[in-house]
Simulated assay, not measured.
Amino acid sequence: MARTNITKTTRSRAGVQPTMVAVDASASPNGMMFDWTATAEVVVRSTDGSPHTMTVAVADAARPDGLTVPGRAVTIPATTTVALAAGPFGPEYRQADGKVYLNFDAATGMTIGVLDNA
C-alpha cells in the first residue's frame, strides 16, 4: 500500500501549531512519510490508553556491507496531552525517494505532524 505523505508546517518565531493528521490506520504498520531535511521534526499525539511505537526506517543506502540495521524506535506514551517531539533525523534516514519513512505498531488514536524551518 502507498504511504501517506505528511505536509510540513513551517516553524515561526511567533509560534505555530503543527497541522496534525491521523496516523493512516489502513496502512499500519507502515504508511506515513515526509520530505527529508536536516531540520524536520515529527510531533505525535495519542489518545489511546496504551503506549505505541513509531519506527523511523533507516535507508538501505545507510546499511554498511548489506547488514540489517534496525530503525530508530520511538515510544509514544499512552494518552499524550502534549505531543511528543522526535528528530531531526540525519541523512541515514533519507530514503532513495528523499522521504523519511515512519512505521507504526498501531494507529489507534494517534495523530502526527511535521515541523520544519522555511
Rank of each mutant, 00 (worst) to 15 (best):
A118F: 14
M1K: 03
A38T: 04
L67D: 15
A27C: 08
T37L: 12
T55P: 03
V16H: 05
D97M: 04
G15Y: 12
G109M: 10
I112R: 02
T39E: 01
A106F: 09
T80F: 11
G90M: 02
V100N: 01
G98E: 06
S12C: 09
N5T: 08
D105A: 10
V16M: 10
T81C: 02
A73H: 03
A107K: 06
V56C: 06
T10H: 13
V42D: 01
K99L: 01
Y101M: 06
Q95Y: 13
W36G: 01
P91C: 07
D24S: 14
T9S: 12
V21I: 15
M110R: 00
I76Y: 11
N5W: 02
N30L: 14
Q95T: 03
V21H: 01
T79A: 11
D48N: 15
R13V: 12
D60H: 05
I76R: 00
A59K: 02
F104S: 05
R3A: 04
G15L: 00
A22V: 00
K99H: 08
P77M: 13
R63K: 15
L67S: 13
G31N: 07
G109Q: 09
P18C: 03
T9M: 04
E92I: 01
A61F: 11
M1A: 07
H52R: 14
T68D: 15
A22D: 12
L67Q: 13
P29A: 14
G113A: 09
P91F: 09
P70K: 06
L102E: 15
T81I: 08
F104L: 04
A83L: 04
F104A: 09
M32W: 04
T55H: 10
R94L: 03
A73N: 13
M33H: 11
I112K: 04
T47Y: 05
I76Q: 04
S28M: 12
V58P: 02
A27I: 08
T39K: 14
A27W: 05
A25E: 09
A73W: 07
M20A: 03
A57L: 14
E41N: 11
A85W: 10
A85N: 14
T4N: 03
P77D: 13
T7V: 05
G98Q: 03
V114E: 01
R45G: 11
A85Q: 15
L102P: 09
Y93L: 01
T4F: 05
N5Q: 08
A14V: 10
V58F: 08
R72I: 09
G109V: 03
V23A: 11
S46L: 15
L102Y: 15
S46C: 12
T9K: 06
M33K: 11
A40M: 02
M54A: 00
F89G: 10
M1P: 07
V43I: 08
A40R: 07
M33D: 11
L67H: 11
S28G: 08
G109N: 09
